[in-house]
Simulated assay, not measured.
Amino acid sequence: MISKINSIIHQNKVVSVFRIKNNSGAYVEVMNYGATILSVVVPDRNNKLENIILHYNNIESYFTDPFYLGCTVGRYANRISDAKFILDGKTYYLDKNDVENSNHGGFNGLNRKIFDYKVNEDNIVFSTESVDRESGFPGNLRLDVSYSFSDNNELNIEYKAMADKRTPVNFTNHAYFNLSGEKQSILNHLFKVNADYYLETDDSFLPTGNIYPLDNTAFDFRRAGEIGQMLQLKNEIIKGYNTYFGTKSNKSDMPLASVTDNYSGRSVDLYTSMPGFQFYTGDYLSGNFIPFEGLCIEAQYHPDGLNHSLFEKNILEPDIEKIDWIKYSFR
């Protein structure tokens, strides 16, 4: 069941919040500002319902949020080095919104757009357009972001994109999970991956181009490990994890990542059509939140893939629709 539960006016447009509730009573709340997830309310081992993502207590706070809380990220998730890339022999210059780099789509990213919407029987579809050269990217882009929530507590997100020029896209969702309902640090959560490698990054969180196997590293979560304990193995300036994990042959029927909280008994599995995900432990949360209060498992294509020959790129061809999807399965 999908119902509208709140609306306010922002920039002379209506921002509305919708609740998608399943037959068990669990629900997800989303809004058309940034096609954002506001809450994921699922049961613990004692069937107690709690919101297990970081959130603000009012809609207005999302308009100035610096952490991309729960929003749709794009046109291009993650960082693009020197805020530029070459496509078909032409150099495109992007917004420098992360020192000298571009991050999460620049100053006019999808997280700041007020989407149109259509409520269907079993999903809600948010739609928007990004004009040619917005934030520097080529092509007029149309994007539909669909949300549904099954009776099995599966949150399904679909990205359906089309542009009139060749253009790179890399969409994701930036929800911060805390499966304990914020009663415990995410450093106590268990993390597991079905990945083959991770990307080395520099101190600016940019990939160096090196692709490393997981064996005998602080990134080897192929067996579930407690995040806080695994951090002790890291030998980097960066304290937490802000790391891309990838697979050579993504089998979409297998979770790329799983997170478990023994305190509540909750788990979430990440499934996706994309080749990997960014794992971020919320090191730089501040203000309403504290570091390591929430973690992100952001399914996406390779960060800065446009500037590394060995990385997978996701280029839309003119007038050809491309679909990618993410599923968060809660148990």
Rank of each mutant, 00 (worst) to 15 (best):
Q300F: 08
L285H: 04
C296W: 04
V268M: 15
S258I: 15
G246M: 03
Y301C: 04
F292H: 14
Y284N: 10
D304H: 12
F311T: 01
H302M: 09
N242R: 09
G282Q: 06
Y301S: 06
I237T: 14
F279K: 10
D253H: 07
K248H: 11
K313L: 02
S286I: 01
E312C: 00
S249G: 07
E312W: 01
D269F: 11
P291M: 03
C296A: 15
T281V: 04
D283W: 01
Q232P: 00
Y301E: 01
S252L: 03
T272C: 06
Y280V: 10
L270C: 12
N262S: 13
A299Y: 10
Q300A: 15
T243R: 02
N235R: 12
D269Y: 13
F311L: 03
I290L: 06
G282H: 05
P303Y: 08
E236G: 00
Y263N: 13
E293P: 11
M254D: 11
K239S: 09
Y263S: 12
G305C: 04
G276S: 09
I237G: 13
V268T: 07
G305H: 05
G287D: 04
N262W: 07
E236S: 14
F277P: 11
F279R: 09
F277C: 09
S264K: 04
E236F: 05
E293Q: 15
F289M: 05
Q232H: 10
C296R: 00
L256P: 00
M254T: 10
T281P: 14
N288S: 13
T272G: 03
N235Q: 15
I297Q: 08
